[in-house]
Amino acid sequence: MKTLTVLGPLSDIPLGEGRAYAVGDDMIAVFRLRDGSLRAVSAVCPHKGGPLADGQIDNSVVVCPLHLFSWDLSTGCSQSGQPPIAVYPVRADDGQIVLGE
């Protein structure tokens, strides 16, 4: 992802939760960790399509709300033998959520 996309204000995402954004043809779930940093991953669970943005997180993983499989938010790797999820570079800039390198 070379282009930068501003998804919206940081205040859109409550601390410790996630929200989903449509970016082109992708659905991306952005999480605001309790340590203040952001993570972005594909929004659709590879298991059976669960909405990952509705999942619970901590500072390392997201747990899908449907069957509670979990994925590492930084690497996208599953901790329970599921296919990995895509991870995207994301950061906060001047109160805005910015997707891209």
Binding site: I13, P14, G18, A20, P51
Partner: peptide, 11 residues
């Protein structure tokens, strides 16, 4: 919370 009822499956 902001976006409490926003969809998580936009497409």
């Amino acid at each position: 919370t902001p976006g409490q009822f926003r969809t998580s499956l936009p497409l």
